[in-house]
Nucleic acid binder design. Structure first.
Length: 249
DNA sequence: AATCTCTTCAACCGCCTCCGG
DNA sequence: TCCGGAGGCGGTTGAAGAGAT
């Protein structure tokens, strides 16, 4: 059992340990966490190293107060996704899942509880008591299975109406996370996609997932299929009922 | 000044999923 | 098919600092 060894150090990290870890990641890159403690000369378990890097040492991590627009986004995404902190954090550049979770628990959770008990202002961005949180089912696809299934999916649509753009299938999202080495939607497309989804909150609450297949440009799909890196690790695909069935016959 | 209480957030823990042997 | 190891995630804890009494 990890962390049960008496020899493994726990607790707050020292500057020296941070430095060792940083140098190790710079030299060998992220990943292979089981090798990191030995490589870095650290008396820490792999999980501790990974966490320290992802939540604290990694470059571009944004520290300090959450801006109003970030808070707004967190509230909206939490409405949609529930406690899927890594997904939410993935839409907030520089913020980690731990940061978002902590912020929610310390700042927003209390607010929501207060809001529930005092008011039901429809214009409020606070969680509505009866909001049904969408919990999309994650599907992990390797490059191979993604391409096969995508092919099947397109064939089905082509058979039906010969025009993907007219399909009613709804793709929910492709989570690329930040560190998976997999495909990410280009910023603009991704932003538009999320904006689109969140602008349609009413239907989302009614469980109709929002991004139809024609919202994802063919060029984006082409890029997925040509992306060499895609699928070496895995990305999650969240699918609506119909598309889920296509991918899981 | 001392003590108590509250808040924050870094870090840990346990669980789940995937992959490779 | 099974099993163990690795990566990753969400929930929880506890130390440290801030504020109140």
């Amino acid at each position: 059992m990890e962390g049960s060894s008496l020899r493994v150090r726990k607790g707050a990290w020292t500057e020296e340990e941070d430095l060792l870890l940083k140098k190790c990641i710079e030299k060998y890159g992220e990943g292979k966490w089981h090798q990191v403690p030995a490589r870095a000369g650290l008396n820490r378990c792999r999980k501790s190293c990974r966490l320290r890097w992802l939540n604290y040492l990694k470059p571009n991590i944004k520290r300090g107060h959450f801006a109003a627009d970030e808070v707004d986004l967190i509230i909206r995404l939490h409405n949609l996704l529930g406690n899927r902190w890594s997904l939410i954090a993935g839409r907030l550049p520089g913020r980690t899942a731990n940061d978002v979770k902590n912020y929610w628990n310390t700042h927003l959770l209390k607010k929501n509880i207060d809001t529930f008990s005092k008011t039901s202002n429809p214009k409020s961005h606070q969680l509505k008591p009866n909001t049904k949180v969408i919990k999309p089912r994650p599907q992990i696809l390797s490059k191979r299975s993604f391409l096969v299934n995508l092919d099947e999916y397109n064939n089905n649509n082509n058979n039906n109406n010969n025009n993907r753009a007219e399909t009613s299938n709804n793709v929910v999202l492709a989570d690329c996370g930040d560190n998976h080495g997999g495909y990410c939607f280009p910023d603009h497309d991704e932003m538009m996609w999320w904006e689109n989804m969140m602008m349609n909150e009413k239907e989302v609450d009614g469980h109709q997932l929002q991004c139809s297949a024609n919202d994802i440009d063919q060029s984006v799909l082409d890029q997925i299929m040509n992306e060499d890196n895609y699928g070496n690790t895995m990305d999650e695909f969240f699918l609506d009922e119909e598309l889920w069935n296509v991918f899981n016959p």
